[in-house]
Nucleic acid binder design. Structure first.
Ligand code: MN
Ligand code: MN
Ligand code: ZN
Ligand code: ZN
Lengths: 166, 166
DNA sequence: TTGTTTTTCAACAATGATTGTTGACAACGG
DNA sequence: CCGTTGTCAACAATCATTGTTGAAAAACAA
């Protein structure tokens, strides 16, 4: 993903308007490796711009995805996740407890489909999701209720660094 | 997935009741390789039992999944898909046009994560989704609308080889 | 079989995530 | 500055899925 300034330029040159809300979203996404959901982005942006609507966040994320500056992912956590990292070829680690998503930067060149097994599909891409437990969910500290609650769906919580639930 | 008779027995022995609706669902799932959604199952079952509710279908699918007789799958088509094939180790081909899902029966044993790349995750499983075009969507016959009825609603955009499954 | 207890079913309503609509308002080009 | 065009935020609507509940059916005992 480009810098906020470059994105401003890109939006203008692609016939889109640039607003304070959008630039704020650009900034928030910069270097975010947590694969946030639209709501998570909205929560962060809201700290800076109280009145911004969730719809605006969705719209801007959609625009960024359309421009190829971010990717939208569905890894089964119930909400679409957005990934500013579109430069590295990578796959994902998904915590089945808290739903956190992290990059796994590694190529798997052996993903060749055996002859005749493709059932006539014209395969364009392959995505791997590794499921397991993130470091936080792996060793729950006794007496510590922060970090996660139950299902990946509900609750916002997220005290610890870099593992946001929503 | 077991036969309808075996499932009847299994349901009883696991403290569940067996109803005509459930047995009908058992039968419909038998040998269904299309990875139907709950609604798709409901549509088929409804031809035989007019009054069965979608909720009942969901409930029965959930029970079957809990018993490990079917798997529930989220491959980003907007609806949870159900897979009666839990015996073969396999991955999935997903049509990005019509959302159809087929089995790709092939083992990819070398999905070893490079040392240190796992970010502390305790990885338990890996799923591969191959995205592309199914035979029907690949060569659309003029005037033939079959196979095109449902467009994938929650599309994941993302041109490149990225990540996803759900 | 018959009665008693436990579950299920189907209608109805509610979620939660996402999208559609729209009037007021801001960005851009002149 | 001005008009045109596109955007924003509030509101309502969808869609898939889940919660609730009274009536009916299945399991269990006798
Ligand atoms: Mn990523
Ligand atoms: Mn399958
Ligand atoms: Zn976790
Ligand atoms: Zn297709």
């Amino acid at each position: 993903m480009k810098t906020a300034e470059e994105l401003t330029e890109l939006f203008r040159s692609s016939g889109r308007k640039v607003t304070a809300q959008r630039q704020c979203i650009f900034r928030v996404l910069q270097g975010d490796g947590t694969h946030p959901s639209a709501e998570a982005v909205h929560a962060v942006v809201s700290r800076e711009m109280e009145t911004i609507s969730l719809k605006t966040v969705y719209q801007t994320l959609y625009d960024l995805a359309e421009l190829g500056e971010i990717a939208s992912l569905d890894v089964g956590t119930g909400m679409t996740r957005f990934d500013p990292n579109v430069d590295d070829r990578h796959h994902h680690l998904v915590c089945r407890r808290c739903g956190s998503v992290r990059d796994l930067v590694a190529a798997f060149p052996e993903l060749r489909i055996p002859e005749g097994a493709d059932l006539g599909f014209e395969v364009g891409s392959a995505e791997i999701v590794f499921r397991g437990l993130c470091p936080e969910c792996r060793a729950p500290v006794p007496g510590d209720r922060a970090g996660m609650r139950s299902s990946p769906r509900t609750s916002s919580t997220s005290t610890s660094t870099s593992t946001s639930t929503r």
